[in-house]
Nucleic acid binder design. Structure first.
Lengths: 205, 205
DNA sequence: CGGAAACGAACGACCGTTAGGTCGTCGGCG
DNA sequence: CGCCGACGACCTAACGGTCGTTCGTTTCCG
C-alpha cells in the first residue's frame, strides 16, 4: 500500500469491501469530483464489478454522502475536543480550535476537498444532514470569537467576517498541503498565530 | 434579464451566441461543476441545439478553458492595477492588493468558483496556460510580502504561509458572498485590515 | 443449508461529437 | 443593378460509447 497515513478517520466503522469502496471513491472524488468519476471505475479499483457495489450501498450518491458525513463529523469532533482542551482563555481557545481546523484539513485533505466541493451533488435531505453539522462547527468558532470580543481581548468590525476569514485559511490547506514540504504542526502553529493577530490586532485605520 | 451585474468581465470579447454560451455554461459549471453539466443543457439554455455549439467552439473543454482563462486574466490584471495604484508603502500595497482580490471574488463569484475547482478537468496544455497566470499572481503578492519583511514592517515566520492564508481568505469569498448581505467594499476593507494585522502583528508566543 | 457477496448481462437514458443539409446574408462582379 | 457564390449559423439525425442501476444466477463461507 502506497498510502502512509489513513485516508479516512477511524470514525468510519465501515470495513472490508465497504471501506475499500469508500477509500477508492474518496481518492477519485477528491481529484476529479463526484460527477467526474464513474461507479464502474470505483468498483474496479476496489476489485469488484460495478453491479456488486449495490450489495453494500444503495446508490452512488450514498457513497458521497457517507464520505461527506464522516468528514463533517470528524471535523466537528476535532474542533469540540480542541475547545475542551483549551481552558477558558480566549487566546488559548482560538489557538486550539484553529490548530485543530488546520490539522483536519492537512490530515484528510481529500476528504476535506470532497466535503467542501460536492454539497450540490447531494440530495436535499442528505445536504441538510451535512449542513446541520457544519452550522454546529460555525457556531462553535463564532462563540469563541464573540466571547473574546465581549471580554475586550478580540476586536473585529464584524465577528462573522472574522470567522469566515479564519475558517477560509484552514479550508484551503487541503488544496496545497500534500504538495508542499510543510510540517503539519508548523502550519497549525503559524495559522493559530495568524488567527490571534487577525482577531486581536489594534483596530486598523 | 434577471442578472443585475455582469456574469463575465468586459475582458471577454465574445459576443452574440458565443457569449451567451459562455454565460450559460458559467452559471451551470459554477453550481454543479464541469462534469455535472451536459453540452445539451448549455446549448438549450442558450437557445440553440447541442450540435450548433460546435460552430463556435471546438469542444466542451474549450468552453471551460475560455472561462478559466478569462477569470485568471481578470484576476491578475486587477491585482496588477491595484498594486500600481498603491504607491511604495507596503501597508498600502497589501491593502490595495487584498481589496482587489476580494472584489474580484465578490464581483464574479461563479467565475472564481470555476477557476478554483475545475483545474483537473482541463487538458494539460490548457491547465499550464492557466497556471502560468496563477503563478504570476502568486509572485505579485509574495513580492509585496517579502518587500514588507525586508523593510521590517511585516513579520511572519514564513512568507509563503502568509500568502496562502491571505489568498485563501479572499478565494472563499466567492463561496458565500452572494448568499449574504454584505457590501463588497466593507468586506474588502475588513479583509485588508485582516491582512495587515496578520502580516504586521507582533511576533506571537 | 442459508445468506451474504459476488458475478455477467442487460436496461434505458444520456454523453460528447460528427455528418450533412438548409437558410439567410453579404461582398464582388458582369 | 442584379445576380451568384461563399460562408457562417443553425438544424435534424445519428454515431459509438458510457452512465447508474436492476436482474437472475452462482459462489463461498459459516
Amino acid at each position: 500500500m502506497a498510502t502512509v497515513i489513513a485516508l479516512l478517520p477511524a470514525r468510519s466503522t465501515a470495513d472490508g469491501t465497504h471501506r475499500r469502496l469508500l477509500e477508492e471513491a474518496l481518492l477519485r472524488f477528491g481529484e476529479r469530483g463526484f460527477h467526474g468519476v464513474s461507479v464502474r471505475e470505483i468498483a474496479e479499483a476496489a476489485g469488484i464489478r460495478a453491479s456488486s457495489i449495490y450489495a453494500h450501498l444503495e446508490s452512488k450518491e450514498e457513497l458521497l454522502f457517507q464520505l461527506m458525513y464522516i468528514g463533517h463529523e470528524e471535523h466537528y469532533e476535532m474542533l469540540r475536543h480542541a475547545l475542551l482542551d483549551a481552558g477558558a482563555d480566549p487566546f488559548s481557545q482560538i489557538r486550539h480550535v484553529v490548530a485543530a481546523h488546520v490539522r483536519l484539513h492537512a490530515t484528510y485533505p481529500l476528504l476535506a476537498r470532497v466535503c467542501n466541493r460536492e454539497l450540490p451533488a447531494l440530495s436535499e435531505a442528505n445536504r441538510d444532514r451535512v449542513l446541520t453539522i457544519r452550522s454546529n462547527s460555525e457556531q462553535l468558532i463564532l462563540d469563541v470569537i464573540n466571547r473574546g470580543m465581549s471580554r475586550g481581548v478580540f476586536h473585529v468590525s464584524d465577528p462573522w467576517l472574522g470567522y469566515a476569514a479564519i475558517g477560509s485559511m484552514g479550508i484551503r490547506v487541503a488544496e496545497w498541503w500534500d504538495q508542499r514540504a510543510y510540517d503539519i504542526e508548523d502550519v497549525a502553529e503559524t495559522y493559530a498565530d495568524f488567527a490571534v493577530r487577525l482577531l486581536s490586532g489594534a483596530p486598523a485605520t
